[in-house]
Design a protein around this nucleic acid. Sequence first.
DNA 1: ATGGTTGCCGAGCAA
Length: 256
Amino acid sequence: MKIASWNVNSLNVRMPHLEQWLGQFQPDVVALQETKLEDHRFPDTALVGLGYRSVFAGQKTYNGVAILSREPIADVQVGIPGFDDVQQRVIAATVGDVRIVNLYVVNGQDVGTDKYDYKLRWLDAVHGWLSSELQAHPRLVLLGDFNIAPDDRDVHDPQVWNDGHILTSTAERTALARLQSLGLHDAFRLHHDDAGQFSWWDYRQAGFRRNLGLRIDLTLVSDALRPHAAAAGIDREPRTWDRPSDHAPAWVELAG
DNA sequence: ATGGTTGCCGAGCAA
């Protein structure tokens, strides 16, 4: 079972890329972020034609998340229970016997801003919710655009991306580590320990060509699924295509 | 590098 996460940065623009990628990569489940589409505009009919059901929670202009699956999707949850939020950043659902939790984590803009405070409060709410979600669903995959690079291997320049910088600040990394301490394991790091493997490259300054990137798109597997995480990676190919998203898909394969 | 690029929508904001 191949499960992937992809921040498409507008599904309206990226639908041809998604179609191409679904056809060649053949994922079983895909978590999308930044669809930037109201629900009535979501291309669910076109996706059925490609063999995928979908559930989604969108809004105009910003945010928006979805889960696509070849198999039936059950028990859909939108948002974090008990955390009022007008921003559509969370959708969870069950596929087979696996709970899929898709996050579009707050970017945070800059350390010390109101958006940064919102990011940390939002991550705290996710932590509280996931501790109970894991009890109810031990076989769980938490994936998405985390907008946090876990450690210095995951940034092209640790001098710039340091403990005072957004996406790499100590408080953000601590919040991510706290989530992982619930028993969630970075599937990529179960299989690779090298630096310089990124999932996002800034559109500016020819970031992709120069590999000036960060690894901020993660697939985390629960304790129960860890022995089944047979492979994980990042598919850079769609980032090479014409008019790409600034993110590449990150994936984990569950076996057995 | 208070730059640079893309997507939203039609002026700046968010990333």
